[in-house]
Design a protein around this nucleic acid. Structure first.
Length: 298
DNA sequence: AATGGTGTCAACCGCTGTCGA
DNA sequence: ATCGACAGCGGTTGACACCAT
């Protein structure tokens, strides 16, 4: 289709955000919620385009964002998800609590792709690199490895150790066969969280979902009509205030959203989570991961 | 101390998909 | 069926920080 850039208007600010702009944006969203990005800047008193506001909020100002200090487990999860999903950063980020697609993308490009290369793996195909290519790449990366890790270590000093990586409810997915008004799309995405707790209403954009932990059941059954029975996710909250709640969410191929509350005081959630981590770590379960990935892409 | 090379990441750009008029 | 508005995605850029020389 193509149309003029949204920031082409004369007088609009570009580049880094000032603290004052951040404050204006945060205050406006706290009072009015997310969305309506086009009209938001004017109403909030910002000389920015809506797109810029949305990006700033999504990638930086959202209260549930966890920045930096990506753990080894998260590394592993990102690599595995990338091997399944490719450069679908939004989908990958949707499975890591508090991580944004931009952060995952940057982290991939600056760290993980190099890490894979140094391990002899092609970061695009996830297949083994040939020996000559590998040697050449190692030569180059060896020179830079020190600086990267050292700087990363310094940055990490002041930060708190993150939680284990969690598997997350997908962000809203465009589905041709699934048609709802814009507002309802968000509601559907939040159905599961809304059912379990009302404390996630940080904004209209479903912020609460970033604290949701999903663990797939291991005994899925695919019906003849393509529906998946038992392809559910045990869902709990990463938020310490909500560790007493979790629920089952059926994530069928037609984006059905169902929910039931389950008790959690017996630690079954933790067990299932560990079970899922095990599943992630074993290559022979690649087939499970593949079907998991397919379920995200429908 | 100065300088050039490199890494990082916030922000921008261009595009696509969806929806409603 | 078409078009414009809007939201969102992935690729790219550029400013800045850091490091080696």
């Amino acid at each position: 289709m193509g149309r003029a850039p949204c920031c082409s208007k004369v007088g609009l600010h570009k580049g880094p955000w000032t603290p004052r702009e951040d404050t204006l944006l945060v205050k406006y969203i706290q009072n009015h919620g997310e969305g309506h990005w086009r009209s938001l800047p004017k109403k909030a008193g910002l000389l920015r385009c809506g797109k810029s506001c949305r990006l700033r909020w999504m990638n930086y100002l959202r209260p549930d964002i966890k920045r930096g200090n990506i753990s080894a487990d998260e590394d592993d999860l990102i690599i595995r998800l990338h091997s399944l999903l490719g450069n679908r950063w939004s989908l990958i980020a949707g499975r890591l609590p508090g991580r944004t697609d931009n952060e995952i993308k940057n982290y991939w490009n600056t760290h993980l792709s190099k890490k894979l290369i140094s391990e002899g793996t092609d970061p695009i195909t996830h297949k083994k690199l040939s020996q000559p290519v590998l040697q050449e790449v190692k030569k180059r990366s060896g020179r830079n490895a020190k600086t990267s890790s050292k700087r990363q270590a310094n940055k990490n000093k002041a930060k708190v150790e993150p939680d284990k990586p969690k598997i997350h409810l997908p962000k809203p997915v465009r589905a041709k066969s699934f048609s709802l008004p814009r507002d309802h799309r968000l509601q559907c995405n939040n159905l599961s969280t809304a059912a379990a707790s009302t404390s996630h209403s940080k904004g209209a954009g479903g912020l609460g979902t970033d604290n949701v932990v999903l663990v797939p059941w291991s005994d899925d059954v695919v019906r003849d009509d393509g529906h998946v029975e038992g392809t559910g996710f045990l869902e709990g909250y990463n938020d310490h205030d909500h560790h007493d709640h979790h629920q089952l969410v059926i994530n069928g191929s037609d984006l059905e959203c169902h929910s039931n509350l389950l008790p959690t005081s017996d630690g079954s959630l933790e067990k299932l989570y560990e079970e899922y981590l095990q599943l992630l770590r074993t290559n022979e379960d690649q087939v499970h991961l593949d079907s998991f990935a397919e379920s995200l892409l429908i």
